[in-house]
């Protein structure tokens, strides 16, 4: 695939700039949270006077029922939300690509077994599965939650990567390499991986958006971060009881989640279109939401 064409298409696509812009903004906000946050995120400033105050000049996004500054919590919360999403997707991608390449390249019984496993995994309703595990197994912290999310995010990638690896395996240049006595390891790293990396990246970008949504939903259900830490979903949860009169606790974190997920999805769409211009439509598998949020 001509790299120049891809780059050109990407640079021309406004979705890329919007997506990257939003994500860069979020990343900077998350990284510099300790510097720019007006208050400590978990400091209960005044549990009587400042509990549940509407947005004001002192607290731009209001305060929560514990007298904490919502803006500061959202800034620090973005670290948690984004870290979970990135880490979970990174893990899922690595594992999914590994399984996909192995299945696709080696084929035969290995492929059958792995793909049946993927089929089975696909049939687990992810949200329900995580709710059940988290609720029954108790104290699910950030690390465990990340692992849980990763555990339901990998199979979409592996199916896609396998399909790609399957086509690459039978390509002329791979045949030639094999005929020249190149080891399987080298063929995989030299020829197969570079060819599956594109779809994998597209999928991961779309997956990040979905994982952010999933994490928010789970935090809203009280699964994941533990007080006094915040994630976007947990801020909504802290305010859920007071939704009707303290709307800022639901609205602002919700918008943050929406905008971030939107940026990831826009970027993902743009990447997909750029990498595969012949196909103006989404690839069947990579548009399949990896995670249901």
């Amino acid at each position: 695939m001509p790299a120049i064409g891809v780059r050109h298409r990407l640079l021309r696509d406004r979705r890329v700039w919007i997506g990257l812009g939003v994500l860069a903004f979020m990343a900077v906000a998350a990284l510099t949270a300790p510097l720019i946050a007006p208050y400590k995120p978990d400091a209960q400033l005044d549990i009587v006077q400042l509990a549940g105050q509407a947005p004001s000049s002192a607290h731009w996004l209001g305060t929560d029922p514990f007298g904490r500054d919502v803006l500061s919590r959202m800034l620090f919360g973005s670290r948690v939300s984004l870290t979970i999403a990135l880490a979970a997707v990174a893990m899922a991608m690595t594992f999914g690509t590994l399984v996909g390449v192995i299945a696709g390249y080696f084929g035969g019984p290995v492929d059958s077994v792995l793909m049946r496993l993927v089929d089975a995994a696909f049939s687990i309703p992810p949200l329900l599965y995580i709710i059940v595990v988290a609720a029954l197994w108790g104290d699910v912290g950030i690390v465990a939650l990340t692992l849980l999310i990763a555990s339901v995010a990998w199979f979409g990638v592996s199916r896609l990567v396998r399909a790609k690896a399957l086509t690459v395996r039978d390509a002329d240049f791979v045949m030639a390499a094999r005929a020249l006595g190149m080891s399987s390891w080298r063929i995989v790293t030299r020829h197969v991986l570079p060819n599956v990396v594109g779809p994998a990246i597209v999928t991961s970008t779309l997956a990040i958006g979905n994982v952010i949504l999933l994490e928010a939903g789970l935090s809203y259900l009280g699964i994941g971060v533990r007080p006094p830490q915040a994630s976007w979903g947990s801020i909504i949860q802290d305010g859920a009881e007071r939704m009707s009169d303290q709307w800022w606790l639901t609205l602002f974190p919700g918008l943050a989640i929406l905008v971030t997920a939107f940026a990831c999805n826009a970027l993902g769409d743009a990447l997909r279109d750029a990498l595969d211009p012949r196909q103006l439509q989404p690839l069947r598998d990579d548009d399949t939401p990896l995670i249901t949020a």
Partner: peptide, 8 residues
């Protein structure tokens, strides 16, 4: 719409 958190 695709990016809206469903619970939200």
């Amino acid at each position: 719409l695709y990016s809206v958190p469903d619970f939200w």
